[in-house]
Nucleic acid binder design. Structure first.
Ligand SMILES: [Mn+2]
Ligand SMILES: [Mn+2]
Ligand SMILES: [Zn+2]
Ligand SMILES: [Zn+2]
Lengths: 136, 136
DNA sequence: AAGTCCAATGCACTATTGTTGCACGTATAT
DNA sequence: ATATACGTGCAACAATAGTGCATTGGACTT
C-alpha cells in the first residue's frame, strides 16, 4: 500500500495540496466524474486549475477519459499499473441509462477488434449502455 | 434505388427542402460530421434548424451519433435498413488520430460483450482509434 | 538566509457546443 | 376556407472547453 504522494511522483507529477484533494476525490468515487462534478464537490477550486490538473493527470496516465453519450467528458482513475495507451490493457465502460452513472469494468477487457486492411488500430473506447447492477 | 423523399417518408419524416439538403450533405460525406460541419457547408442555415433536423433524423433512425474522443457529437447516416437501437446491429467506428476523421465501418459489427451479473446491456458504442487507410 | 527560477494557481475572458422559447410562415387535415 | 399542427428563424441562454497573464509558492542555488 503506497501513498498517493509516491504514486503521483512515480508518474512524474509534482505533489501539491490541490492535486492530492482532487486525486482523493476521484479515488472515493466509484463512478466516472465530469469536471463539473469535481467543481461542485469543493467550494473554492477554480475551474481552470481543475481543468489543467485533470489534463495533467491524463497525460501522465493517472486518469483516463470516458465518452459515454452524455455531453461532457468523464474521467476515472487508472488502475495502479495500467497502460491506458495500449490496446491490450483497455477495459470496457458501462453507462446506466437509468441513473446516468458510468463505471469502469476494469476486469472486462475489450476483445481484440479486427479492422479493415490499411487501418491501424492503436486503441479503443467501448461503452456499453443499459441498466447497471444498482438499478436492475 | 429509391428516392430520398421516399426514404424519409418511410421513416415518418415529412420532407422539406431543408431536410433534403441536409440529408444530401450527409450522404455525400464519407465520414461522420458535427453540427458545425453542416453549418459551415451552407451559408444560410440556422444552427437551431440544423440541430432540430438532426435530432429528428436521429429519433427516426435516419442518422446515428458517434462519440469519438473529440469535443462535439458527430453524426452519420444509418444504413438503409439498420436498427441502430438493437445491440446486434451495431457496427464499429474508426477515428483517425492523424486526419481526425471518423468513419463508420458498417460491416464490422461489435462482438457480443459480456457484462457482470446484475448489469443489463442494451447497446454499445465502440470507437477504435489509430491510423486510417488514407493516412497509413 | 536570501534570492532565483519555474511550475502551479487564480482570475478574467473568449470560444464552441448544446438547448429553449416564441413568433411567424407553411403545409396538412376537416 | 378555416383550423391545426409542424417547420423554420431569431434571440437568448446554458454548459463545456480553452487561453493569456499576473501572482503565488516551493524547490533549488548561492
Ligand atoms: Mn475506465
Ligand atoms: Mn456508424
Ligand atoms: Zn444505474
Ligand atoms: Zn486519417
Amino acid at each position: 500500500m503506497e501513498t498517493i504522494e509516491k504514486h503521483l511522483e512515480k508518474k512524474g507529477i509534482r505533489v501539491t495540496a490541490m492535486r492530492l484533494l482532487i486525486y482523493k476525490f476521484l479515488a472515493e468515487k466509484k463512478s466516472a466524474v465530469t469536471l463539473s462534478d469535481i467543481e461542485n464537490a469543493f467550494d473554492k477550486v477554480d475551474r481552470t486549475t481543475l481543468y489543467r490538473t485533470v489534463k495533467t493527470f491524463e497525460s501522465k496516465g493517472v486518469v483516463h477519459q470516458i465518452n459515454d453519450g452524455s455531453t461532457g467528458t468523464k474521467y476515472a482513475l487508472c488502475e495502479t499499473n495500467c497502460k491506458c495507451e495500449l490496446e491490450t490493457d483497455l477495459h470496457l465502460h458501462f453507462h446506466c441509462n437509468n441513473c446516468e452513472e458510468t463505471v469502469c469494468l476494469t476486469d472486462h477487457k475489450i476483445p481484440q477488434i479486427k479492422v479493415p486492411d490499411g487501418f491501424i488500430a492503436e486503441n479503443a473506447n467501448l461503452v456499453v449502455k443499459g441498466i447497471c447492477n444498482k438499478c436492475s
